[in-house]
Design a protein around this nucleic acid. Sequence first.
DNA 1: TTCATATATGAATATGTATTCATATATTCA
DNA 2: TGAATATATGAATACATATTCATATATGAA
Lengths: 112, 112
Amino acid sequence: MHSCKEHVEKEEKIIQNIPDDDNILSLSELFKIFGDPTRIRIIYCIYKKKMCVCEIAESINMSHSSVSHQLKTLKQARLVKSQKEGKEVYYSLNDEHVEKIFSLGLEHIKEM
Amino acid sequence: MHSCKEHVEKEEKIIQNIPDDDNILSLSELFKIFGDPTRIRIIYCIYKKKMCVCEIAESINMSHSSVSHQLKTLKQARLVKSQKEGKEVYYSLNDEHVEKIFSLGLEHIKEM
DNA sequence: TTCATATATGAATATGTATTCATATATTCA
DNA sequence: TGAATATATGAATACATATTCATATATGAA
């Protein structure tokens, strides 16, 4: 056969198929957001209807502070949006892809 | 209106829509795997054809050791499979969902 | 067998991050 | 105005993890 080094030279075009650094980083950042159980739970909470921080915290049994921090993360990633109503701030999903990405993920783990 | 506490009592059914802990954890573990740029690059490498550790390392310009560690992670998550050929070990994708999850992710970041 | 190459892996290090704690701001109500 | 409630946030802590380094194993070639 041939050595590994020869392989790499012959297959250099593969490198061109890899998205550029910006896309790689954006993509991994996006998935990193979904890679935390608390954030998954929060997203499920507001999946069907908007909820305020207090409701979310009670529902998933986490501290208000922790939920607030994670909501900030989710908002910076533009996956949720917020809407102030009096004392309360209501959060809801901001992206139609979230549902699809979730269902694919669930499909995957159910087949494993 | 009504207080936040009243809200939570009225909406208790929302909790039932949240998948159980096992599924939440499996889902976040799955996305966590995709949440690292090195692993994303590796997956792109072996997206179309199997590659050995050495080829992957050269392609993404990472140390063999680092790539090997990450391949172990990917294999434990059952996203890649390996196949020994002589001195070399070839890795390839092990899941038809990966492609779909990636395309959705790319769709998302391109619209942001 | 000896050497070179390919891969794997435990340990150490460095970095990132989730949660908690204390505190600040804002709103509503008495 | 003062008290209670809802949310936000900086700092500290605790924990997870990506990479490196050193080393081990395995295969093939000389």
